[in-house]
């Protein structure tokens, strides 16, 4: 009886997993097939090879795109870690005038859709001469209201006595932050950092309008670029690049899922 129930559960889980993963599996399969087979619809072809990947690396700038994305996402990740942490520290531990009002103003910006901010941001970045450059792609994202909010919630869980203890043993504010608060809220921090990295690895709209050359173009925009080039409809190669772009996301999700679960809960549930 018990085993029957468990078997049914697993069968259902596997079916649903297959359903959800079908596009991904199909994509991986297609990336191994020659374009002629894909175009002809011969998906049952066994003519598989890594030729598409070799071609993608040799004939398209996908490696450059991935490098750009890596640089951009990493810079934003570090930037947000620094600025969101400091802002969250202020909101969680310091007492100052209008604290709640300022925090509320932070939160309001979360309700403003990014699309609505694009034009003023574009004008600012253009005025600074940062179009089609790393600063233009990263600095506007060095802080985020969501990040400040998430970290503040986590910091508020740090017992008041730990602050008192760190005062007693002579830790300064920065030491308290780096040696006690950050390790204490480790799972939220890791979640936040990985989440930030993924968000910007997958960024599309902002890089689309602020990059004009391959030199700084990140992956998502680059992929789209490959498809829209008239002469280029080599679907095998496109699928191979898409899978390559996808890999870091999958990797981070698999490594980080333990923290994602803990970290996102930590913000919402007290204790």
């Amino acid at each position: 009886m018990k085993y029957a129930k468990r078997t049914i559960h697993y069968v259902l889980l596997i079916l649903i997993a297959l359903l959800v993963m079908a596009p991904l599996l199909l994509g991986i399969w297609a990336s191994l097939l020659p374009t002629t087979d894909i175009v002809a619809g011969h998906f049952n072809s066994l003519n598989i090879s890594l030729n598409n990947y070799v071609a993608a690396i040799q004939t398209t700038p996908v490696v450059l795109y991935m490098w750009n994305s890596l640089v951009i996402s990493s810079l934003i990740m570090v930037g947000q870690l620094i600025f969101c942490t400091l802002a969250a520290y202020a909101f969680a531990f310091l007492q100052f005038r209008f604290k709640n009002g300022i925090f509320f103003a932070f939160l309001i910006t979360m309700m403003l859709p990014f699309e609505a901010q694009i034009i003023p941001n574009f004008q600012t970045v253009r005025a600074l001469g940062w179009l089609d450059s790393y600063p233009g792609l990263t600095i506007p994202f060095f802080t985020s209201a969501f990040g400040v909010f998430m970290l503040r919630q986590a910091f508020l869980q740090v017992p008041r006595e730990l602050k008192e203890y760190s005062d007693l043993i002579g830790l300064g504010r920065l030491q308290f932050l780096t040696r006690i608060v950050l390790p204490y809220t480790r799972s939220t921090i890791i979640t936040f950092v990985l989440y930030t990295f993924l968000t910007h690895w997958n960024a599309y709209l902002w890089p689309l309008i602020t990059t004009f050359s391959d030199a700084h173009r990140p992956t998502q925009v680059g992929l789209k670029q490959l498809q829209s080039e008239d002469t280029f409809n080599n679907w095998g190669v496109i699928m191979a690049t898409a899978i390559m772009v996808l890999l870091p996301t999958l990797l981070i999700l698999i490594i980080g899922q333990r923290y994602f679960r803990k970290g996102l809960n930590a913000g919402g549930v007290k204790g």
């Binding site: 017992p159 008192e164 203890y165 007693l168 830790l171 006690i180 390790p183 204490y184």
Partner: peptide, 30 residues
Amino acid sequence: PKDRHLAMVFQNYALLPFMSVAENIRFGLH
């Protein structure tokens, strides 16, 4: 507080959960 050279024990212990017992004690000697 640090110049008063005193030690304190808290109701909720205020131990650092990410450090071992020995590291916690050592950290207090910082």
